[in-house]
Write a protein that binds this DNA or RNA. Structure first.
Lengths: 244, 244
DNA sequence: TATTATTGTACCAAATTGAGACAATAATAT
DNA sequence: ATATTATTGTCTCAATTTGGTACAATAATA
Protein backbone atom coordinates (compact mmCIF):
# COMPACT_ATOMS: atom_id res chain seq x y z
CA UNK A 1 0.00 0.00 0.00
CA UNK A 2 1.49 3.28 -1.05
CA UNK A 3 1.10 6.26 1.18
CA UNK A 4 -0.36 9.31 -0.48
CA UNK A 5 1.96 12.31 -0.36
CA UNK A 6 0.04 15.53 0.04
CA UNK A 7 -0.08 18.16 -2.67
CA UNK A 8 2.10 20.98 -1.49
CA UNK A 9 0.49 24.03 -2.88
CA UNK A 10 -3.07 23.10 -2.08
CA UNK A 11 -2.45 22.75 1.60
CA UNK A 12 -3.33 25.65 3.80
CA UNK A 13 -1.30 24.28 6.66
CA UNK A 14 1.38 21.65 7.02
CA UNK A 15 -0.89 18.68 7.54
CA UNK A 16 0.78 15.74 5.96
CA UNK A 17 4.20 17.31 6.31
CA UNK A 18 6.22 18.46 9.28
CA UNK A 19 6.12 22.23 9.37
CA UNK A 20 9.31 24.29 9.65
CA UNK A 21 11.47 21.42 8.35
CA UNK A 22 12.77 21.09 4.82
CA UNK A 23 15.66 19.39 3.13
CA UNK A 24 17.76 20.46 0.20
CA UNK A 25 19.93 18.14 -1.81
CA UNK A 26 23.06 18.70 -3.83
CA UNK A 27 22.97 15.93 -6.39
CA UNK A 28 26.41 15.39 -7.89
CA UNK A 29 26.93 13.74 -11.24
CA UNK A 30 30.00 13.45 -13.40
CA UNK A 31 30.15 13.80 -17.15
CA UNK A 32 32.44 15.24 -19.75
CA UNK A 33 35.25 15.46 -17.21
CA UNK A 34 33.21 17.83 -15.10
CA UNK A 35 31.29 17.72 -11.89
CA UNK A 36 27.67 18.73 -12.23
CA UNK A 37 24.69 19.17 -9.95
CA UNK A 38 20.96 19.15 -10.46
CA UNK A 39 19.27 22.54 -10.37
CA UNK A 40 15.56 23.21 -10.76
CA UNK A 41 13.90 26.24 -12.26
CA UNK A 42 10.44 27.19 -11.10
CA UNK A 43 7.70 27.92 -13.59
CA UNK A 44 7.76 31.42 -15.04
CA UNK A 45 10.02 32.84 -12.39
CA UNK A 46 13.68 32.54 -13.43
CA UNK A 47 14.18 31.35 -9.88
CA UNK A 48 16.65 28.50 -9.56
CA UNK A 49 16.89 26.20 -6.59
CA UNK A 50 18.30 22.95 -5.35
CA UNK A 51 15.97 19.98 -5.38
CA UNK A 52 14.38 19.97 -1.98
CA UNK A 53 11.25 18.96 -0.20
CA UNK A 54 9.49 18.23 3.01
CA UNK A 55 9.17 15.41 5.47
CA UNK A 56 5.95 13.48 5.84
CA UNK A 57 4.52 13.36 9.33
CA UNK A 58 5.13 9.63 9.50
CA UNK A 59 8.22 9.53 7.36
CA UNK A 60 11.89 9.21 8.30
CA UNK A 61 13.91 12.27 7.39
CA UNK A 62 16.33 10.26 5.27
CA UNK A 63 13.46 8.52 3.53
CA UNK A 64 11.91 11.83 2.62
CA UNK A 65 15.09 12.81 0.86
CA UNK A 66 15.23 9.47 -0.96
CA UNK A 67 11.64 9.94 -2.02
CA UNK A 68 12.44 13.34 -3.46
CA UNK A 69 15.47 12.04 -5.30
CA UNK A 70 13.49 9.15 -6.67
CA UNK A 71 10.92 11.55 -8.07
CA UNK A 72 13.51 13.69 -9.77
CA UNK A 73 16.00 11.12 -10.92
CA UNK A 74 14.09 7.86 -11.06
CA UNK A 75 16.83 6.22 -9.00
CA UNK A 76 16.01 4.56 -5.73
CA UNK A 77 19.37 3.31 -4.46
CA UNK A 78 21.31 6.49 -4.12
CA UNK A 79 24.42 7.30 -2.16
CA UNK A 80 23.35 9.96 0.32
CA UNK A 81 25.03 11.91 3.12
CA UNK A 82 23.91 14.65 5.43
CA UNK A 83 26.18 17.61 5.45
CA UNK A 84 24.77 20.43 7.49
CA UNK A 85 21.65 22.00 8.92
CA UNK A 86 20.94 25.55 7.83
CA UNK A 87 18.94 27.09 10.60
CA UNK A 88 19.45 30.83 10.58
CA UNK A 89 16.47 33.14 10.83
CA UNK A 90 17.69 35.29 7.98
CA UNK A 91 17.19 32.48 5.47
CA UNK A 92 13.47 33.07 5.87
CA UNK A 93 12.32 34.95 2.76
CA UNK A 94 8.57 34.37 2.45
CA UNK A 95 8.33 36.64 -0.60
CA UNK A 96 10.31 34.14 -2.65
CA UNK A 97 8.08 31.22 -1.80
CA UNK A 98 5.11 33.46 -2.40
CA UNK A 99 6.39 34.36 -5.85
CA UNK A 100 6.86 30.72 -6.72
CA UNK A 101 3.39 29.77 -5.58
CA UNK A 102 1.81 32.71 -7.35
CA UNK A 103 3.64 31.95 -10.58
CA UNK A 104 1.97 28.58 -10.38
CA UNK A 105 -1.48 30.06 -9.99
CA UNK A 106 -1.86 29.68 -6.25
CA UNK A 107 -2.87 32.49 -3.95
CA UNK A 108 -1.33 31.50 -0.64
CA UNK A 109 -2.84 33.05 2.46
CA UNK A 110 -0.58 34.98 4.76
CA UNK A 111 -0.37 32.10 7.22
CA UNK A 112 0.25 29.41 4.61
CA UNK A 113 2.72 26.97 6.09
CA UNK A 114 5.11 27.30 3.16
CA UNK A 115 5.54 30.97 3.93
CA UNK A 116 6.71 30.15 7.44
CA UNK A 117 10.28 29.89 8.52
CA UNK A 118 12.08 26.67 7.60
CA UNK A 119 15.15 24.92 8.87
CA UNK A 120 16.77 22.98 6.09
CA UNK A 121 18.79 19.81 6.37
CA UNK A 122 21.32 19.73 3.57
CA UNK A 123 22.33 16.48 1.90
CA UNK A 124 24.59 15.56 -0.91
CA UNK A 125 24.02 12.64 -3.22
CA UNK A 126 26.32 10.91 -5.66
CA UNK A 127 24.73 9.38 -8.72
CA UNK A 128 25.64 7.87 -12.02
CA UNK A 129 24.95 10.60 -14.52
CA UNK A 130 24.19 8.16 -17.32
CA UNK A 131 21.35 6.53 -15.46
CA UNK A 132 19.40 9.71 -14.90
CA UNK A 133 16.81 11.63 -16.83
CA UNK A 134 16.10 14.57 -14.55
CA UNK A 135 12.41 15.27 -14.12
CA UNK A 136 10.89 18.54 -12.97
CA UNK A 137 8.20 18.44 -10.31
CA UNK A 138 4.80 20.10 -10.21
CA UNK A 139 6.19 23.53 -9.40
CA UNK A 140 9.17 23.57 -11.69
CA UNK A 141 9.79 23.86 -15.40
CA UNK A 142 13.03 22.03 -15.38
CA UNK A 143 15.43 19.95 -13.40
CA UNK A 144 18.77 19.97 -15.17
CA UNK A 145 22.45 19.35 -14.84
CA UNK A 146 24.65 22.40 -14.41
CA UNK A 147 28.40 22.51 -14.34
CA UNK A 148 29.53 23.46 -10.87
CA UNK A 149 31.49 26.39 -12.23
CA UNK A 150 28.61 27.94 -14.16
CA UNK A 151 25.69 27.64 -11.77
CA UNK A 152 22.85 30.10 -12.16
CA UNK A 153 22.15 32.33 -9.23
CA UNK A 154 20.29 30.25 -6.65
CA UNK A 155 17.54 31.34 -4.28
CA UNK A 156 17.92 31.77 -0.55
CA UNK A 157 21.13 30.30 0.84
CA UNK A 158 21.35 27.53 -1.74
CA UNK A 159 24.75 28.71 -2.93
CA UNK A 160 26.06 28.18 0.60
CA UNK A 161 24.51 24.75 0.63
CA UNK A 162 26.35 23.81 -2.55
CA UNK A 163 29.56 25.11 -1.04
CA UNK A 164 29.07 23.14 2.15
CA UNK A 165 28.23 20.00 0.21
CA UNK A 166 31.38 20.32 -1.83
CA UNK A 167 33.48 20.86 1.26
CA UNK A 168 31.98 17.83 2.93
CA UNK A 169 32.44 15.72 -0.16
CA UNK A 170 36.10 16.72 -0.32
CA UNK A 171 36.57 15.98 3.33
CA UNK A 172 35.07 12.53 2.93
CA UNK A 173 36.81 11.78 -0.34
CA UNK A 174 39.39 9.45 1.07
CA UNK A 175 37.05 7.43 3.24
CA UNK A 176 34.18 7.09 0.84
CA UNK A 177 34.20 5.11 -2.34
CA UNK A 178 33.20 8.09 -4.34
CA UNK A 179 34.02 6.71 -7.74
CA UNK A 180 31.69 3.79 -7.30
CA UNK A 181 28.73 6.08 -7.08
CA UNK A 182 29.63 8.67 -9.70
CA UNK A 183 30.91 6.34 -12.39
CA UNK A 184 29.33 3.54 -14.38
CA UNK A 185 29.98 -0.05 -13.35
CA UNK A 186 33.17 -0.23 -15.37
CA UNK A 187 35.55 2.64 -15.96
CA UNK A 188 39.15 3.39 -16.77
CA UNK A 189 41.75 4.66 -14.35
CA UNK A 190 41.65 7.96 -16.19
CA UNK A 191 37.92 8.26 -15.61
CA UNK A 192 38.45 7.71 -11.94
CA UNK A 193 41.24 10.23 -11.77
CA UNK A 194 39.11 12.81 -13.51
CA UNK A 195 36.40 12.35 -10.91
CA UNK A 196 38.89 13.03 -8.16
CA UNK A 197 40.31 16.00 -9.99
CA UNK A 198 36.87 17.44 -10.58
CA UNK A 199 35.97 17.13 -6.93
CA UNK A 200 39.23 18.51 -5.59
CA UNK A 201 39.53 21.03 -8.41
CA UNK A 202 43.24 20.40 -8.72
CA UNK A 203 45.44 18.19 -10.86
CA UNK A 204 46.61 14.85 -9.51
CA UNK A 205 49.87 13.14 -10.42
CA UNK A 206 48.83 10.30 -12.69
CA UNK A 207 51.12 7.44 -11.70
CA UNK A 208 50.85 8.11 -7.99
CA UNK A 209 47.09 8.13 -8.25
CA UNK A 210 47.21 4.82 -10.07
CA UNK A 211 49.45 3.34 -7.41
CA UNK A 212 47.19 4.53 -4.63
CA UNK A 213 44.01 3.22 -6.22
CA UNK A 214 45.46 -0.15 -7.14
CA UNK A 215 46.97 -0.38 -3.68
CA UNK A 216 43.62 0.16 -2.00
CA UNK A 217 42.59 -3.32 -3.01
CA UNK A 218 39.14 -2.08 -3.96
CA UNK A 219 39.53 -2.31 -7.71
CA UNK A 220 38.99 -5.33 -9.90
CA UNK A 221 40.67 -5.28 -13.28
CA UNK A 222 38.75 -6.38 -16.35
CA UNK A 223 39.44 -6.58 -20.08
CA UNK A 224 40.98 -3.69 -21.93
CA UNK A 225 38.90 -1.03 -23.54
CA UNK A 226 39.83 -0.29 -27.14
CA UNK A 227 38.83 3.25 -27.90
CA UNK A 228 39.99 3.26 -31.54
CA UNK A 229 42.56 5.88 -30.68
CA UNK A 230 46.20 5.53 -31.62
CA UNK A 231 47.65 4.48 -28.30
CA UNK A 232 47.75 1.76 -25.70
CA UNK A 233 44.31 0.72 -24.52
CA UNK A 234 43.54 1.14 -20.82
CA UNK A 235 42.14 -1.58 -18.61
CA UNK A 236 38.62 -1.31 -17.34
CA UNK A 237 38.08 -1.51 -13.61
CA UNK A 238 35.18 -1.95 -11.26
CA UNK A 239 34.88 -1.64 -7.50
CA UNK A 240 34.92 -4.83 -5.51
CA UNK A 241 33.27 -3.45 -2.38
CA UNK A 242 29.56 -3.38 -1.82
CA UNK A 243 27.60 -0.30 -2.67
CA UNK A 244 26.87 1.65 0.48
CA UNK B 1 16.29 44.15 25.53
CA UNK B 2 16.22 40.51 26.41
CA UNK B 3 13.80 38.26 24.62
CA UNK B 4 11.59 36.19 26.84
CA UNK B 5 11.96 32.46 26.31
CA UNK B 6 8.66 30.65 26.78
CA UNK B 7 8.06 28.21 29.61
CA UNK B 8 8.12 24.78 28.09
CA UNK B 9 5.75 22.78 30.15
CA UNK B 10 3.01 25.36 30.39
CA UNK B 11 2.59 25.65 26.69
CA UNK B 12 -0.21 23.77 25.06
CA UNK B 13 1.27 24.24 21.63
CA UNK B 14 4.66 25.25 20.32
CA UNK B 15 4.07 28.99 20.25
CA UNK B 16 7.36 30.59 21.01
CA UNK B 17 9.27 27.58 19.74
CA UNK B 18 9.45 25.83 16.41
CA UNK B 19 7.47 22.61 16.68
CA UNK B 20 8.98 19.29 15.64
CA UNK B 21 12.54 20.60 15.96
CA UNK B 22 14.85 19.95 18.87
CA UNK B 23 18.55 19.86 19.48
CA UNK B 24 20.64 17.66 21.71
CA UNK B 25 24.17 18.43 22.74
CA UNK B 26 27.05 16.23 23.74
CA UNK B 27 29.15 18.45 25.95
CA UNK B 28 32.66 17.09 26.30
CA UNK B 29 34.93 17.97 29.16
CA UNK B 30 38.24 16.53 30.24
CA UNK B 31 39.31 15.85 33.79
CA UNK B 32 41.24 13.25 35.67
CA UNK B 33 42.65 11.88 32.46
CA UNK B 34 39.19 11.02 31.25
CA UNK B 35 36.70 12.34 28.78
CA UNK B 36 33.36 13.22 30.29
CA UNK B 37 30.03 14.52 29.07
CA UNK B 38 27.16 16.33 30.70
CA UNK B 39 24.07 14.25 31.42
CA UNK B 40 20.85 15.46 32.98
CA UNK B 41 18.46 13.55 35.18
CA UNK B 42 14.82 14.54 35.19
CA UNK B 43 12.99 15.04 38.47
CA UNK B 44 11.76 11.84 40.12
CA UNK B 45 12.09 9.72 37.04
CA UNK B 46 15.52 8.09 36.89
CA UNK B 47 15.43 9.18 33.27
CA UNK B 48 18.74 10.42 31.95
CA UNK B 49 19.15 12.54 28.87
CA UNK B 50 21.54 14.78 27.00
CA UNK B 51 21.13 18.51 27.48
CA UNK B 52 18.79 19.57 24.74
CA UNK B 53 16.21 22.12 23.94
CA UNK B 54 14.14 23.90 21.37
CA UNK B 55 14.53 26.70 18.90
CA UNK B 56 12.74 29.99 19.37
CA UNK B 57 10.58 31.08 16.47
CA UNK B 58 12.87 34.01 15.83
CA UNK B 59 16.08 32.41 16.92
CA UNK B 60 18.94 30.96 14.86
CA UNK B 61 19.35 27.23 15.37
CA UNK B 62 22.96 27.60 16.46
CA UNK B 63 22.02 30.38 18.84
CA UNK B 64 19.41 28.19 20.46
CA UNK B 65 22.07 25.64 21.24
CA UNK B 66 24.38 28.30 22.62
CA UNK B 67 21.56 29.59 24.77
CA UNK B 68 20.97 26.13 26.19
CA UNK B 69 24.64 25.61 26.89
CA UNK B 70 24.89 28.98 28.54
CA UNK B 71 22.03 28.06 30.87
CA UNK B 72 23.59 24.78 31.88
CA UNK B 73 27.25 25.69 31.99
CA UNK B 74 27.36 29.42 32.43
CA UNK B 75 29.76 29.66 29.49
CA UNK B 76 28.91 31.76 26.49
CA UNK B 77 31.87 31.31 24.19
CA UNK B 78 31.79 27.62 23.52
CA UNK B 79 33.30 25.54 20.76
CA UNK B 80 30.36 23.96 18.99
CA UNK B 81 29.89 21.68 15.98
CA UNK B 82 26.92 20.06 14.38
CA UNK B 83 27.29 16.37 13.91
CA UNK B 84 24.10 14.80 12.64
CA UNK B 85 20.34 15.12 12.37
CA UNK B 86 18.36 12.31 13.92
CA UNK B 87 15.11 12.19 12.04
CA UNK B 88 13.70 8.71 12.20
CA UNK B 89 10.06 8.19 13.07
CA UNK B 90 10.86 5.51 15.58
CA UNK B 91 12.59 7.97 17.87
CA UNK B 92 9.15 9.32 18.69
CA UNK B 93 8.27 8.02 22.15
CA UNK B 94 5.60 10.32 23.56
CA UNK B 95 5.20 8.24 26.70
CA UNK B 96 8.69 9.23 27.82
CA UNK B 97 8.06 12.94 27.44
CA UNK B 98 4.72 12.44 29.12
CA UNK B 99 6.36 10.71 32.06
CA UNK B 100 8.82 13.56 32.43
CA UNK B 101 6.13 16.20 32.33
CA UNK B 102 3.90 14.31 34.76
CA UNK B 103 6.76 13.77 37.19
CA UNK B 104 7.01 17.55 37.23
CA UNK B 105 3.37 18.01 38.05
CA UNK B 106 2.11 18.82 34.58
CA UNK B 107 -0.82 17.07 32.94
CA UNK B 108 -0.09 17.48 29.25
CA UNK B 109 -3.04 17.15 26.90
CA UNK B 110 -2.85 14.54 24.20
CA UNK B 111 -2.02 17.11 21.57
CA UNK B 112 0.61 18.91 23.62
CA UNK B 113 3.37 19.92 21.24
CA UNK B 114 6.05 18.23 23.33
CA UNK B 115 4.36 14.89 22.77
CA UNK B 116 4.64 15.31 19.02
CA UNK B 117 7.32 13.87 16.87
CA UNK B 118 10.68 15.67 16.93
CA UNK B 119 13.64 15.78 14.65
CA UNK B 120 16.77 16.45 16.62
CA UNK B 121 19.90 18.21 15.48
CA UNK B 122 22.87 16.80 17.36
CA UNK B 123 25.80 18.97 18.36
CA UNK B 124 28.95 18.43 20.25
CA UNK B 125 30.65 21.04 22.36
CA UNK B 126 34.14 21.20 23.82
CA UNK B 127 34.54 23.04 27.07
CA UNK B 128 37.03 23.62 29.79
CA UNK B 129 35.89 21.39 32.63
CA UNK B 130 37.32 23.64 35.29
CA UNK B 131 35.27 26.63 34.27
CA UNK B 132 31.93 24.90 34.59
CA UNK B 133 29.46 24.37 37.36
CA UNK B 134 26.72 22.35 35.67
CA UNK B 135 23.24 23.62 36.44
CA UNK B 136 20.04 21.63 36.11
CA UNK B 137 17.08 23.26 34.40
CA UNK B 138 13.47 23.50 35.49
CA UNK B 139 12.63 19.92 34.59
CA UNK B 140 15.76 18.22 35.84
CA UNK B 141 17.26 17.35 39.19
CA UNK B 142 20.79 17.35 38.01
CA UNK B 143 23.17 18.12 35.23
CA UNK B 144 26.39 16.31 35.91
CA UNK B 145 29.60 15.05 34.41
CA UNK B 146 29.76 11.37 33.60
CA UNK B 147 32.73 9.41 32.40
CA UNK B 148 32.11 8.33 28.83
CA UNK B 149 32.65 4.71 29.78
CA UNK B 150 30.15 4.64 32.61
CA UNK B 151 27.20 6.54 31.24
CA UNK B 152 23.78 5.77 32.68
CA UNK B 153 21.21 4.44 30.29
CA UNK B 154 19.94 7.36 28.25
CA UNK B 155 16.45 7.97 26.91
CA UNK B 156 15.42 7.71 23.29
CA UNK B 157 18.33 7.50 20.89
CA UNK B 158 20.65 9.59 23.02
CA UNK B 159 23.20 6.79 23.21
CA UNK B 160 23.46 6.88 19.41
CA UNK B 161 23.87 10.62 19.57
CA UNK B 162 26.80 10.27 21.94
CA UNK B 163 28.30 7.67 19.65
CA UNK B 164 27.91 9.89 16.62
CA UNK B 165 29.37 12.87 18.45
CA UNK B 166 32.39 10.85 19.45
CA UNK B 167 32.91 9.60 15.91
CA UNK B 168 32.67 13.11 14.54
CA UNK B 169 35.04 14.46 17.16
CA UNK B 170 37.56 11.76 16.28
CA UNK B 171 37.20 12.47 12.61
CA UNK B 172 37.80 16.18 13.16
CA UNK B 173 40.58 15.67 15.67
CA UNK B 174 43.42 16.54 13.35
CA UNK B 175 41.84 19.61 11.83
CA UNK B 176 40.42 21.12 14.95
CA UNK B 177 42.41 22.57 17.78
CA UNK B 178 40.73 20.33 20.24
CA UNK B 179 43.13 20.83 23.10
CA UNK B 180 42.53 24.55 23.13
CA UNK B 181 38.93 24.05 24.01
CA UNK B 182 39.17 21.17 26.45
CA UNK B 183 42.20 22.30 28.42
CA UNK B 184 42.95 25.34 30.56
CA UNK B 185 44.96 28.18 29.09
CA UNK B 186 48.26 26.58 30.02
CA UNK B 187 48.95 22.88 30.08
CA UNK B 188 51.75 20.38 29.82
CA UNK B 189 52.48 18.21 26.82
CA UNK B 190 51.31 15.25 28.86
CA UNK B 191 47.94 16.89 29.49
CA UNK B 192 47.52 17.42 25.79
CA UNK B 193 48.48 13.86 25.00
CA UNK B 194 45.99 12.54 27.52
CA UNK B 195 43.22 14.52 25.85
CA UNK B 196 44.05 12.92 22.53
CA UNK B 197 44.30 9.49 24.09
CA UNK B 198 40.97 9.90 25.83
CA UNK B 199 39.27 10.92 22.60
CA UNK B 200 40.82 8.21 20.47
CA UNK B 201 40.68 5.65 23.26
CA UNK B 202 44.08 4.33 22.37
CA UNK B 203 47.63 4.98 23.55
CA UNK B 204 49.83 7.40 21.62
CA UNK B 205 53.58 7.18 21.32
CA UNK B 206 54.89 9.94 23.52
CA UNK B 207 57.85 11.35 21.62
CA UNK B 208 56.13 11.23 18.25
CA UNK B 209 53.18 13.09 19.69
CA UNK B 210 55.51 15.71 21.09
CA UNK B 211 57.24 16.07 17.74
CA UNK B 212 53.93 16.44 15.90
CA UNK B 213 52.51 19.02 18.28
CA UNK B 214 55.67 21.12 18.42
CA UNK B 215 55.93 20.84 14.65
CA UNK B 216 52.44 22.19 14.15
CA UNK B 217 53.63 25.62 15.12
CA UNK B 218 50.53 26.18 17.19
CA UNK B 219 52.10 25.87 20.61
CA UNK B 220 53.83 28.55 22.60
CA UNK B 221 56.22 27.40 25.30
CA UNK B 222 56.17 29.03 28.70
CA UNK B 223 57.97 28.55 32.01
CA UNK B 224 58.35 25.12 33.52
CA UNK B 225 55.85 23.72 35.92
CA UNK B 226 57.37 22.33 39.08
CA UNK B 227 55.07 19.69 40.46
CA UNK B 228 57.15 18.81 43.53
CA UNK B 229 57.69 15.35 42.15
CA UNK B 230 61.11 13.75 41.85
CA UNK B 231 61.73 14.22 38.16
CA UNK B 232 62.33 16.74 35.43
CA UNK B 233 59.68 19.44 35.31
CA UNK B 234 57.69 19.80 32.10
CA UNK B 235 57.22 23.04 30.21
CA UNK B 236 53.83 24.65 30.11
CA UNK B 237 52.35 25.39 26.72
CA UNK B 238 49.48 27.41 25.34
CA UNK B 239 47.95 27.64 21.90
CA UNK B 240 48.96 30.54 19.74
CA UNK B 241 45.98 30.46 17.38
CA UNK B 242 42.72 32.20 17.95
CA UNK B 243 39.91 30.31 19.59
CA UNK B 244 37.60 28.40 17.24
C1' DT C 1 75.86 11.73 46.11
C1' DA C 2 73.13 7.99 44.23
C1' DT C 3 68.44 6.98 42.87
C1' DT C 4 64.00 7.58 40.60
C1' DA C 5 60.57 9.09 37.44
C1' DT C 6 59.84 12.00 33.74
C1' DT C 7 60.77 15.07 30.05
C1' DG C 8 63.01 16.92 25.81
C1' DT C 9 65.76 15.88 21.94
C1' DA C 10 68.26 13.13 18.73
C1' DC C 11 68.50 9.49 15.82
C1' DC C 12 67.45 5.44 12.85
C1' DA C 13 64.47 2.49 10.18
C1' DA C 14 60.13 1.69 7.91
C1' DA C 15 56.45 3.39 5.33
C1' DT C 16 54.36 6.77 2.44
C1' DT C 17 54.42 10.28 -1.00
C1' DG C 18 56.06 13.16 -5.03
C1' DA C 19 58.12 13.16 -9.41
C1' DG C 20 60.13 11.28 -13.36
C1' DA C 21 61.97 7.39 -16.55
C1' DC C 22 60.74 4.00 -19.57
C1' DA C 23 58.84 0.14 -21.93
C1' DA C 24 54.42 -1.54 -23.93
C1' DT C 25 50.90 -0.84 -27.13
C1' DA C 26 46.84 0.53 -30.32
C1' DA C 27 46.05 3.03 -33.84
C1' DT C 28 47.75 6.14 -38.00
C1' DA C 29 50.94 7.79 -41.42
C1' DT C 30 54.62 6.48 -44.60
C1' DA D 1 56.03 -3.64 -43.10
C1' DT D 2 57.81 0.27 -40.40
C1' DA D 3 57.99 4.66 -38.21
C1' DT D 4 55.15 7.78 -35.53
C1' DT D 5 52.04 9.30 -31.88
C1' DA D 6 49.51 9.41 -27.68
C1' DT D 7 48.59 7.07 -23.71
C1' DT D 8 49.03 3.50 -20.23
C1' DG D 9 51.19 0.49 -16.75
C1' DT D 10 55.20 -0.37 -14.07
C1' DC D 11 59.56 0.91 -11.84
C1' DT D 12 62.73 3.58 -9.55
C1' DC D 13 64.61 7.14 -6.69
C1' DA D 14 64.46 10.91 -3.59
C1' DA D 15 61.97 13.49 -0.14
C1' DT D 16 58.98 13.40 3.56
C1' DT D 17 56.48 11.44 7.23
C1' DT D 18 55.87 8.06 10.73
C1' DG D 19 57.01 4.50 14.29
C1' DG D 20 60.10 3.40 17.59
C1' DT D 21 64.36 3.54 20.63
C1' DA D 22 68.28 5.72 22.87
C1' DC D 23 69.90 8.94 25.81
C1' DA D 24 70.96 13.05 28.25
C1' DA D 25 68.80 16.48 31.41
C1' DT D 26 66.64 17.32 35.61
C1' DA D 27 63.70 17.86 40.06
C1' DA D 28 62.92 15.77 43.83
C1' DT D 29 64.05 11.88 47.41
C1' DA D 30 66.88 8.44 49.81
Amino acid sequence: MKKRTPNLAEQTDGHGYLVHIAYDSVVFGFSGEKLKILVMEYHNTRLFALPGGFVGIHENLNDAVRRGLKERTGLSDIYLEQCYVFGDVKRHKPEILKAILQANGYKPKKDHWLLDRFISVAYYALINYELVTPRPDALSDSCEWYDLDVLPELILDHASIVQKALETLRKNLDEQIVGMNLLPEKFTMKDLQQVYEAILDEPIHRTNFQRKMLGSGLLVRHAKQYSGKAHKAPYLYSFSGKKK
